[in-house]
């Protein structure tokens, strides 16, 4: 469904992503692992159109259509939604307004209301916080609200950028369960994580990126047994 073909992304003259290819099929749960600065977030942002793929150096396809070169709102309208690093809630809007704007592209009001109910059953804690401003929430609540906002967009592919960052182990566990549940409902997921163990436990297929280059890929069950992965990312 989503296919990156040999893409290169540059910041000024320095390549942040080199010759990266990656495939995500419908319903897949894929994780991208790597150290800080390996190019994981850049890859997600290239998919969303926030950063540009170098002209003539690679292409991104979604459902057979070329999407690199399109602007982010267009790509969002096609059903690719990112839950960005650092939550990026709208801090002075209420949680309810944040959720409503998550469904900005949803023209059908009835559908929007249904989605809101669905999302609130998935995140019951947010019910009491609907009228609180985004910035008043705790880190964990903000992350839940950010994911809820992503679901409000009714995405076909949901991209997560470091969702576990800054969360306590307990919250991380809760987060993992939520993401798992979203995947089980049929949403295609790409998860970028520094916490390699979390990524590998949740996803079914993994890509390991180093220095912007693809180093390793395979089923997560195999990656968990891989000696290099163990040494570099799992600290075993």
């Amino acid at each position: 469904m989503l296919e990156l073909k040999n893409i290169w992304v540059y910041y000024d003259k320095n390549p942040a992503v080199r010759d990266l290819s990656l495939t995500v099929n419908k319903g897949d749960f894929v994780t991208i692992l790597g150290a800080n600065g390996a190019g994981k977030s850049t890859t997600l942002n290239a998919i969303c159109g926030v950063v540009k793929v170098k002209k003539g150096k690679g292409e991104i396809f979604f459902k057979g259509k070329k999407i690199n070169g399109l602007r982010p709102p267009k790509i969002a309208a096609m059903g690719i939604i990112q839950v960005p690093e650092g939550r990026k809630l709208w801090p002075l809007l209420t949680v309810q307004e944040n959720l409503k704007l998550g469904a900005y592209l949803q023209k059908d009001r009835q559908k929007m209301k249904q989605n809101m109910e669905k999302v609130l059953t998935l995140f019951p804690d947010l019910k009491d916080k609907l009228h609180a401003k985004g910035r008043m929430l705790s880190g964990g609540q903000q992350q839940m609200a950010a994911i809820a906002r992503g679901l409000m967009a009714d995405p076909e592919v949901l991209l997560f950028d470091e969702p576990s960052l800054g969360l306590s182990p307990l919250l991380r566990q809760h987060l993992a369960e939520i993401i798992k549940e979203i995947s089980q409902h049929g949403t295609t997921i790409v998860l970028v994580e520094q916490n390699a163990r979390l990524g590998l436990m949740l996803a079914s297929y993994g890509y390991v990126i180093e220095n912007g280059e693809l180093k390793l890929q395979g089923k997560t069950s195999d990656l968990l047994k891989d000696e290099n992965v163990k040494k570099a990312y799992l600290g075993v």
Partner: peptide
């Protein structure tokens, strides 16, 4: 208001 507060997120949500 969303654009004034967090333009990147606004773009990501269409």
């Amino acid at each position: 208001r969303a654009v004034s507060q967090e333009p990147v997120a606004a773009n990501l949500y269409g």
